[in-house]
Design a protein around this nucleic acid. Structure first.
Lengths: 204, 204
DNA sequence: CTTAACTTGCACATTGCTGTGCAAGTTATT
DNA sequence: AATAACTTGCACAGCAATGTGCAAGTTAAG
């Protein structure tokens, strides 16, 4: 019969890994285990290899983000984009880990496929915006989608490192995403102000 | 008396390192030496340690970029920003290496200080734009400067991986930088079209 | 052609990590 | 209290890298 604290430790390891990998993507098992309050040796009771642990961090991260973006609806595709940006800010720590492994190491492929649904959502939203004329841009949709992703990431990182209050950060992330997609700063600000559902609403 | 080919090899190593580090920031000395057509052992005839070699790559890269941005003049700070973006595209490979080490590993400090003058230029240009009203944004100047940096980087990366023709890439990098700073896509396009000096002019 | 400069190959020490085996200890569960 | 589940500590093998020493080879320059 499995012991209750075992599953707790399992979870603790994943959380510890997320934190530690955010600080340093090459963090050692030693460091991760220590943060989880376990010995390095104990990790191997839960995960066969280091990569297996990292993979789980990524998988769970992607699930959380996907869940956070689920059932996101708004008639205006541009506002929808802002909403996506806002939700990403809610899940910063997950998002940042994903970003690191999306372009690094042996887990790129795994990360990319875990990220698939999210990327699709962004791209579809942009495509719709371009189609309806709500978005105007000479940049091809797929490339633009990547620029938006990166823009969100970048805003996330800056907001974090500048230790901005959450509501400010939320606004900046949205503004930057909208700017990337071709809105002027005033148009972007107006859109945000006109849609109260875009305002910061605590963390869940 | 030093031999002529020795200095050639020295240079070849730096070039090889730049290429290899662009592919993988953790590239081994073996890989770098191989690309330079030398043995790993020979590297130590030119650089005391691996870090010393990387440091030189960074230093020289920063010098090239700084030189490329030198004597950049334009009455309109916004156009100046576009020019900066364009020049960065001219020096993609240097820029990308810098970007990698600016946020990674033991050479962050060194990279950051090598990058200093460039960052100052961007920030000053933005500050001037905000002051004259040419740029409108609620985002604080220093944060905005970082967003612009990242935006350029991101556009550079996308342009590279999509293998866009240089002139298109150049335009996209500028558009994205201007979008980041609050211009609408149409205003950005107009500004670029109105300033023929922003068009792509081969590689030097 | 001779010499000094440079490169090579190999051996070796070192470092920092991963992954495994095992005996002994601790703790949740029944 | 008994047992199974989990953790620990330590030892050990393995790997991939860096950095060094040295003898032998190659090559540019006088």
């Amino acid at each position: 019969m499995p012991r209750r604290d075992a599953t707790q430790n399992h979870a603790a390891l994943i959380i510890a890994a997320r934190i530690e990998l955010n600080l340093d993507p090459d963090a050692s098992l030693e460091a991760i285990a220590a943060r989880a309050g376990l010995s390095r040796r104990a990790v191997y009771g839960h995960f066969a290899t280091r990569d297996e642990l990292v993979k789980q961090v990524i998988t769970l991260g992607a699930e959380r983000i996907t869940a956070a973006l689920d059932g996101l609806h708004h008639a205006d595709p541009v506002a929808r984009l802002a909403l996506i940006a806002s939700r990403l800010w809610h899940e910063v720590s997950e998002v940042r880990v994903m970003a690191v492994f999306a372009t690094r190491g042996a887990l790129q492929h795994h990360t990319a496929s875990a990220l698939g649904p999210i990327r699709r959502l962004v791209q579809d939203t942009i495509a719709e915006g371009l189609a309806t004329g709500a978005i105007v841009s000479e940049i091809p949709a797929d490339l633009l989608a990547r620029l938006v992703e990166d823009a969100a990431l970048s805003a996330l990182a800056q907001a974090t490192s500048h230790r901005l209050p959450a509501s400010t950060a939320n606004r900046i992330v949205m503004l930057h995403a909208l700017g990337t997609v071709g809105l002027s700063s005033t148009a972007a600000a107006r859109l945000i102000d006109d849609n109260p559902e875009l305002a910061w609403k605590g963390s869940r």
